[in-house]
Design a protein around this nucleic acid. Sequence first.
DNA 1: ATGTTTATCTCGATA
DNA 2: TATCGAGGTAAACAT
Lengths: 235, 235
Amino acid sequence: MRLVVARCAVDYTGRLTAHLPLAPRLLIVKADGSVLVHSDGGSYKPLNWMSPPCRLRTTTRTPEEAALDEDDAWTEQWDVAHDKSGDHLRVRLYKVLEDSAHELGVDPGLVKDGVEAHLQALLADNIETLGSGFSLVRREYGTAIGPVDILARDADGAAVAIEIKRRGEIDGVEQLTRYLELLNRDPLLAPVRGIFAAQAIKPQARVLAADRGISCVTLDYDALRGIDDADTRLF
Amino acid sequence: MRLVVARCAVDYTGRLTAHLPLAPRLLIVKADGSVLVHSDGGSYKPLNWMSPPCRLRTTTRTPEEAALDEDDAWTEQWDVAHDKSGDHLRVRLYKVLEDSAHELGVDPGLVKDGVEAHLQALLADNIETLGSGFSLVRREYGTAIGPVDILARDADGAAVAIEIKRRGEIDGVEQLTRYLELLNRDPLLAPVRGIFAAQAIKPQARVLAADRGISCVTLDYDALRGIDDADTRLF
DNA sequence: ATGTTTATCTCGATA
DNA sequence: TATCGAGGTAAACAT
């Protein structure tokens, strides 16, 4: 990993064209050749970047050579090309404030907990939170267009398809609608009703769900985990 | 901006919990207090981070103090807390390989070109590229569930709703379908047909569009811009 | 390799 | 301030 702090100007051409005027910034060149251009603010997104796989070609000029080019006195130029897409990033360095390099090796990686997969597992384990008498048929119930998160049966034995999202938005309702359409063609299952379950559901998604006859349920991750932990402790 | 390269371990609790085991990484502290943890690969997104607004509290131990804590001999600990959400990031530094700081100032910002809004403007200006006799009714034609990109009329005076995407995917077809359903309830407009226009349209989106009776048109950004420039030059 | 879905999404526009 | 839609979405996961 090479770290450069420098006054620089950046041009990107690819799916769009973008330009960063001359200013001091942090430039990171990673081991795979990818490049990040960061300012001293904003959030984790770089101002500009090139993703791997890509090739970095460096052109250098002496200060004397640069001085001859009065209008554009850069001393170093990086041309980073993405092999497949043809995207191109050009960084021109004007004044280098720092330039260092380190060998970091491959990272052992991140351990995560609390994402949608966990929500699904928790809800499957505690399916009766959706209504008394609910029973799990199976998680990831396959259909021709992909698996439904959970298929269950309610107290009356009627099939219920459940779509789980961390954030309930309109797309999720559309997705569940497509699943329901397919599932209801199966005479062994029909009629199948839908439940849209999420930690938070946007108003537009609620309206669309209501229009499609789909119920909405708000999930409380911590409460579900609490129930689950309590269950586990019983054994 | 402070740059630290160090062997470190990271823990995050917030919308999820995550842990990074001990390994050498790049740590960036920006002027607004935000923190990024980067590995030497897998670009763009940090392994872990804290977005502003947040507060950074640093605890340091002398090497002697650290040595006394045999199991966990960190010399410096960062506690980064997000004020609103209660998210918390803890970084423990074990061996610092580099530690530098720079004043970069506020970035002048990115100049972009070629996004969807531009495509929409270009197509509105050159609506006849969709068919001879086409005329623009208006851009961003409002409906109860949001504005349609373009409403036009064809040579026969029939209404046409146009959805524009940079990349034509299944979501865009769903969106246009919803608009068409609503627009066709308006007796002053009905029947309204749909055109799905994008720089590239995925096969699945094409299939769905065909199934819904929606035409697909591939847009050539450079050609449209060429036409537009030519038009402009005529005046 | 390709398609699909998620995301501590980020970011900007808008009501 | 909240909400909504787009993104050079990126990245993970399944096919």
